[in-house]
């Protein structure tokens, strides 16, 4: 670009800045083996409540420790690289309304689970079935779900800040 860009060149540069930011958000993914490990652990933990009811306590603890360890590893460069992440998204790049939306969905799911609990619906091997479904969803659709989330972030970002505004 020349020292004094024309309006067309400036507009092109702004579009490129937006495109690169979207590209960065859309190119963040982890290793497949991490999805497989999480899927296996989720299945084993949920299946254990059907087959080993006494193990319900430690299976929940295992899940919590694994999730915490994953979160902590992602915060460090070496840990994230080990988990197959080549970059860490900047929190400021995620629009607050997207974060609010994710929290609302999370609260709604928790509320729905608590609402269903008193009904005492007994499905034979319900936890095992739930574990298998969650594990399959994670393995088969894990990458698609992440791409979908990235697309949602991009959409909510472009709605709030157009033309390269930071």
């Amino acid at each position: 670009m020349v020292e004094h860009p024309s309006a067309e060149e400036a507009a092109r540069a702004l579009r490129d800045v937006d495109r690169r930011r979207d590209q960065a958000l859309g190119s963040l993914h982890g290793a497949k083996w991490v999805d497989l490990t999480f899927a296996l652990v989720i299945f084993l933990c949920l299946a254990s409540t059907d087959f080993l009811p006494s193990a319900a306590g430690w299976s929940g603890l295992t899940m919590a420790v694994l999730a915490l360890g994953y979160g902590l590893l992602l915060r460090t460069r070496r840990g994230a690289a080990w988990l197959g992440h080549s970059a860490r998204v900047d929190r400021s790049a995620i629009p607050p309304r997207f974060v609010l939306g994710v929290w609302l969905v999370f609260v709604a799911v928790c509320a729905a689970m608590f609402a269903v609990r008193p009904l005492h619906v007994q499905i034979p091997y319900g936890s095992t079935i739930m574990g298998a479904v969650l594990a399959i969803v994670l393995v088969v659709f894990g990458q698609h779900l992440r791409r979908g989330l990235a697309a949602l972030v991009r959409r909510s970002r472009s709605g709030g800040a157009a033309d390269g505004h930071a």
């Binding site: 490129d16 800045v17 930011r21 960065a24 080549s86 860490r88 998204v89 900047d90 929190r91 790049a93």
Partner: peptide, 13 residues
């Protein structure tokens, strides 16, 4: 612009 959306990124990325 790429780096602006990340806290850090690997060179090869």
């Amino acid at each position: 612009a790429l780096l602006a959306s990340t806290e850090w990124a690997e060179f090869r990325w």
